[in-house]
């Protein structure tokens, strides 16, 4: 994990270094006197050679010092900590919603394969992965906020504000989880032990939920974990549209303002959060699958 994070720092720093546009100029405008801008650049260390800047940043990160924002001059860690919970909450709610919709739909479509339910669920699933989440968000704002005046169009303060963004980014995850559940269930349902369970006269619901679903859930867990990571970084557009003070929208804003420290710190934090989610998924396997649990005994 540490070499990967180091690599992330190097790639992001290189990208930032070659990005045209001076952060000080952007902040103070063209009218600012050149001497002043140069003095600020010296202060922020922007005039140092590339490797020196990079080395200083890495040494800082090792000491858990992510530098200060160029714009607000406050520590990057504090700025991000103020916004990360919103992004985390949005991603978590969306994954929960996706699991609540995706798994039942996947089960129905697998157990009733080749029926109208299956066709319908497959079609909805395909539609779900195809609709861009920012467009879905915009359509929902127009319909539910502008036309019907049911929900607030922007913000993230009350549960009422959470509904539309969660649906907007959860929809595609729900579709992906549904497709995964379906194909995984279909694979398990043909196994010999399912036939055995039916042959010994087990109730159909027990066969599906105890014998089939528990075995089919493992790949679904992997995909759900991956989706959580994708949503952490992919909520950018949804956060922008609903004006949610989250990390993704903040990083995009920082890219516009050339606030280097926020850009790199934010991406780094998402990468770290992502690897922790993957770790959590690995641990979760042991709870779902006794076979994996017994390996580590």
């Amino acid at each position: 994990m540490i070499p990967v994070l180091l690599g992330v720092i190097v790639i992001m720093y290189t990208l930032i270094y070659i990005t045209p546009g001076c952060p000080v100029r952007i902040q103070f405008g063209d009218a600012a006197p050149t001497e002043y801008v140069e003095q600020m650049r010296d202060e922020l260390g922007l005039n140092d050679p590339f490797l020196m800047q990079l080395g200083r940043y890495v040494i800082g990160v090792v000491q858990l010092d992510f530098g200060n924002s160029f714009v607000t001059r406050r520590p990057v860690f504090d700025e991000i900590a103020a916004r990360f919970p919103n992004t985390m909450q949005l991603a978590a709610m969306s994954v929960v919603l996706a699991l609540m919709i995706g798994i039942p739909l996947g089960i129905i479509s697998a157990t009733k394969q080749y029926t109208i339910f299956d066709g319908g669920a497959t079609f909805i699933g395909l539609l779900g992965v195809s609709i861009p989440n920012f467009w879905l968000g915009m359509l929902m704002i127009i319909f539910f906020a502008v036309d019907l005046r049911l929900l607030p169009p922007s913000g993230f303060s009350t549960p009422l504000h959470w509904i539309m963004p969660t649906i907007a980014i959860g929809a595609s995850s729900a579709a992906i989880i549904m497709r995964m559940t379906r194909s995984s269930m279909l694979e398990v349902i043909r196994q010999d032990y399912i036939r055995t369970a039916r042959a010994k006269g087990q109730k159909e619901s027990t066969v599906i939920f105890r014998h089939c679903l528990r075995n089919a859930l493992i790949p679904v867990t992997t995909v759900a974990g991956l989706q959580f990571g994708v949503l952490l970084g992919g909520a950018v557009l949804t956060e922008t549209i609903f004006a949610i003070p989250g990390l993704g929208a903040y990083i995009v804003g920082a890219i516009g303002q050339r606030d280097h420290m926020i850009m790199i710190g934010g991406v780094l934090l998402i990468a770290i959060a992502f690897s922790f989610v993957n770790l959590a998924v690995d641990i979760l396997y042991a709870f779902i699958d006794p076979r994996i649990r017994s390996q580590y005994r």
């Binding site: 990208l15 970084g233 992919g234 557009l237 995009v252 516009g256 850009m263 998402i270 992502f274």
Partner: peptide, 24 residues
Amino acid sequence: MRLIDIVLAIPALLMAIAIAAALG
């Protein structure tokens, strides 16, 4: 493969936005 792991660790959309901003 390590290089690819690194690229995959950066959220795809943010990476694309950062590259697009860098290149203009």
